[in-house]
Write a protein that binds this DNA or RNA. Structure first.
Lengths: 231, 231
DNA sequence: GCAAAAGTGTTAGCTCTACACCCATGC
DNA sequence: GCATGGGTGTAGAGCTAACACTTTTGC
């Protein structure tokens, strides 16, 4: 590792070479019927000025999950309700500075209450549609591709997509989340039957008037943290 | 990190503390209608004398997958045909020596041609039934539990279990692999219909006489490396 | 009154599951 | 000849997928 400022500061020594360990988070949300993910513009070298996943170095006494959450909060001000480990990425040479093993995470959040702000060594933080990503630093394009595949793959054997819903929602909104994710139209009656049979949503009793059409019933999740898996 | 031999040898220095990175492999096979996995008896501290997953430290220029394969070969003499990353385990304190992040792997192999021998810093290598595991070093019980869940979970949306088959096999043997994995009986006619509809096995034309009953048709995989995933 | 999304059941096709008997061999 | 696993088809149940019209609102 080349220390730019002072060689005297290199005070952590080991008998064998050690790689650095980072976490990187792929945070998805749905905004305006488009699947988006959060990127930061790097404020430091390497790849200064490029877009990258939020993430950073693991503290020596910190759990991996905690590191992912902390780095996301520091760089973007976001604390997502769902965070799942994706896997470790460690090809030699993926970081020009030194050998770095990155543990990648998949996170999901509703678009509401996601006040994104750049912090720390992020020059900027912004949402990008997965269909129009900028050039990415490191191997982050690869990590995003895996995260996307994992998300889509879990759609039809779990209720993971419910994590993208705000506090309250209509069945139409829920259907649009699914249609956005699978990028196809879904039959309305079949979808509503399926969703209601899950026993994971309940009507609040309220109606939501929005636009020039009949008002929709409002629902909430019965248990926000429960993700059902069915084979 | 305490260097037992010489402090002068601690020559790899960094500006910030770095964890060590290891890989550990959960290698499953099926032997005598029992799902077994490979463990080594540790020859060095910590946990000297306990059983543990084969694995070890990542070389600084080595890919993670390569490290898993190498350590498995060094310690047990085995080169499994299937190796898939399971995830990173990194709870602080999981290794008493220093902070260690372990990238765990799931491996599958047919029992044939698995000449296991202890090597390197393994005092012994042996197969254990997943139903009768010894006390395990580190957090390896947790890793094994995840590997087992992952294997079972993939059973009915992929043909991953075919990786447990030897070069040639009968439909009865294939069925017994599945019955061992799900730990339940499966209807013979339904299973055979399913297996043959996959178009992943082909009859060699040979018959196998084994025991006092009608000889069985012998099959092989049409493409050993192809693992079909169906939702 | 018209445009736009909300809401609601039924049917046909397909997949999944349950189930029983004859065959070829070794002893 | 008997015990053992190999090999084969069909029918009912359950699930999935296709499909159209009425309702309530804003303008």
């Amino acid at each position: 590792m080349a220390d730019p400022s002072a060689n005297a500061a290199q005070s952590y020594c080991y008998q064998y070479p050690h790689p650095a360990v980072t976490t990187d988070v792929v945070l998805f949300t749905i905004h305006e019927d488009s699947l988006q993910l959060l990127l930061i513009e790097r404020g430091n070298k390497p790849f200064k000025g490029s877009w990258a996943l939020p993430g950073g170095f693991l503290n020596i006494d910190e759990d991996l999950d905690a590191c992912a959450a902390r780095e996301l909060a520091e760089e973007t001000g976001v604390a997502p309700p769902y965070l799942e480990q994706l896997g470790a990425f460690g090809k030699p040479g993926r970081d020009p500075r030194e050998r770095v093993i990155s543990v990648a995470y998949l996170a999901l959040a509703p678009e509401t209450a996601l006040a994104v702000r750049a912090g720390d060594d992020a020059a900027a933080a912004a949402w990008f549609s997965v269909k129009a990503l900028p050039a990415l630093a490191f191997d982050h394009a690869e990590i995003i591709a895996l995260a996307h595949r994992r998300l889509i793959g879990k759609l039809d054997n779990s209720t993971i997509a419910f994590q993208l819903l705000p506090e309250t929602f209509t069945l139409g909104e829920l259907q649009r989340v699914y249609e956005t994710l699978v990028d196809a139209e879904i039959d309305k009656r079949n979808f509503r039957k399926w969703a209601q049979a899950l026993e994971q949503i309940e009507a609040t009793g309220e109606l939501r008037r929005r636009g020039n059409h009949r008002p929709a019933r409002v629902y909430r999740l019965t248990d926000r943290d429960r993700i059902t898996r069915f084979k």
